[in-house]
Design a protein around this nucleic acid. Structure first.
Lengths: 116, 116
DNA sequence: CTGATGAGTAAGTCATGGCTAACGGTTAGT
DNA sequence: ACTAACCGTTAGCCATGACTTACTCATCAG
């Protein structure tokens, strides 16, 4: 469970719609802070604050190129979320399938009862 | 992109720590509302509200068994999130790898410069 | 060295949403 | 029918956090 704490922060970070928007913009390629703010309905400091949260969640990384700070996706946060989801995925699927089958059987049974 | 809207709701829903806690409890098996509330530091109505959000995000389903309402994991929400993440996973990995390689090359180069 | 550009920080405002208390609705048991 | 158990909903309070304005820092051009 070394990834769980990273996954927790990542989910909290991507819970905000604006951060998801920023995240998807960065998925198109590395972008500077000002360029992100120019295409968003919020000011540059707000973008900076969101980027800090995303950075702490290991969802993005930052590299300074002169005065421009470039941000790009960080695979670590995404990977942690994927592992967390995969941990529940198989279980949820089989459990749901069993449940659905049981429901179907129950319906069949009551149907037969009615036909008697 | 039929799954994106479902994924958006799912991320917003799991952005809350309490809802993640409830979600993980349900991963251990179907549970009633009162039983969940008994093991959480919040009241039952609060649990009900969280369950409603999780339900709207297709992360859980509800079945009434008499007066007891059983909640269990719904694979649809989890699946939507997995697809959303996978859409960025490969790109982020390769982009990050290319970036890391370029950084390594640059370091090698400056190292050689110094050795001259 | 100065001015300009790009970005992070601090303080303060304000709205979103999580929580509780009180109430209303069903279902099972007697 | 009456009571108890289980749950959902509403109204309202309050804390978290998202946003802006103003300031400060670092870097590049002249």
């Amino acid at each position: 469970m070394t990834y769980s704490s990273a996954a927790i922060k990542a989910f909290s970070a991507l819970g905000d719609p604006t951060r998801r928007e920023i995240f998807e913009r960065l998925a198109l390629g590395p972008t500077a802070v000002g360029e992100l703010a120019a295409n968003l309905p919020i000011t540059r400091p707000a973008v900076s604050q969101h980027l800090r949260v995303l950075k702490e969640a290991q969802l993005v990384t930052e590299t300074s190129k002169g005065t421009r700070h470039l941000y790009r996706l960080d695979p670590r946060g995404i990977g942690a979320m994927r592992e967390w989801l995969d941990g529940h995925w198989a279980r949820a699927l089989t459990a749901f399938k069993d449940f659905a089958d049981a429901e179907f059987e129950a319906e069949n049974k009551s149907q037969k009862e009615n036909e008697k």
